[in-house]
Design a protein around this nucleic acid. Sequence first.
DNA 1: TTTATTTGACCGCA
DNA 2: TGCGGTCAAATAAA
Length: 349
Amino acid sequence: MERVSTWDLKVLTDELAQGMEKAMQLRFHLCSTSHSEAEDLILQRIISTFEKALCILKCGGHVGVAHVGAQAAAPESSISADGSSRSDDTNKNIKEYQEQGYASKKRKLQPTWTEQVKVNSENGLEGPGDDGYSWRKYGQKDILGAKYPRSYYRCTYRQGRNCWATKQVQRSDEDATVFEITYKGTHTCKQFNNVVPPPTSPEKQELKSNNSCYDQLEQNPMLSNFRANLRVNTEVSDIQEMPAYFSFPSTFACYEKENHCSPISALIDDNHLQGTYSPLFYSPATSGSNCFSTATYQMRDHDYGGNDNTDIMSAHASTNNSPIGGMEFSIEPAEIDPNFPFNVPGFFT
DNA sequence: TTTATTTGACCGCA
DNA sequence: TGCGGTCAAATAAA
């Protein structure tokens, strides 16, 4: 296939990074004003979408985002210190992305990450809530040494939209209110546009696929309340073992102790795509301390040695810096494989 | 009738 | 060979 030029990828990356930064800034502003949890959730999703899109560009789809023990079996990506991927590797990764995750069943090489979701049993909900996607359960298995069976879900739109995202839901042995959700692969189905009927009953939550969308969330007090009692624990269990990841610019941070959020743009430099970041994410689940740490973002070369590099990276801060301003996209149709999943949620939205 | 879930069987990998 | 992951027929629910 013809290749997208390195410059085009860089431009695209910069634009996505800008978009994410703006979303971050908006969230920062929301942090100090009254706002609804639904707004938080939407913002969180927007940012997450940018993150994934950036990662797809940089790592060829090997997304390791804000999650526990991310263990993507990703081939080594090579991101240079200035944030521009080595062109050959970038193109190679894009190709691999198509071949591995979405055009074949080589799901072993798909991005994998884990979230821990705590459910407030007082709500009568026994399973983890929605994550914005529509899932269909395809299996359940007793796991050796585990108290509870593991449930297997895949995207409802596997057939129709060739979306190979899957997830596994495992109830924690220690705390039955905690569900460990392992996601494999990223969605290519653009499900945000779909309105899915709410679950028929709370009891069905655990067993049924987690159909939802944010419109539904806003209109459904039960789900909204459920969201309010949902806690996501995301810690990187072992940085050393993580493969080379692209990580994302964070232009603001929330400081838990101070219970306030502060922009960290002042701390940033232009060292794109390098360093280790531990952004504190705004939590929709807590009203007192509205910020909580969700992840350590990894953006480093493969030989990362667990250093203390905490450089904060930022996308270009101003749209005036937009490398895209006034220029034409030169991505010719013939240069893009039609199978490339540009309909990854948020890729061009 | 359609769609989703359950569950035993099968397969691949370590 | 055992375990985890997936398939697919049977079943349940809407």
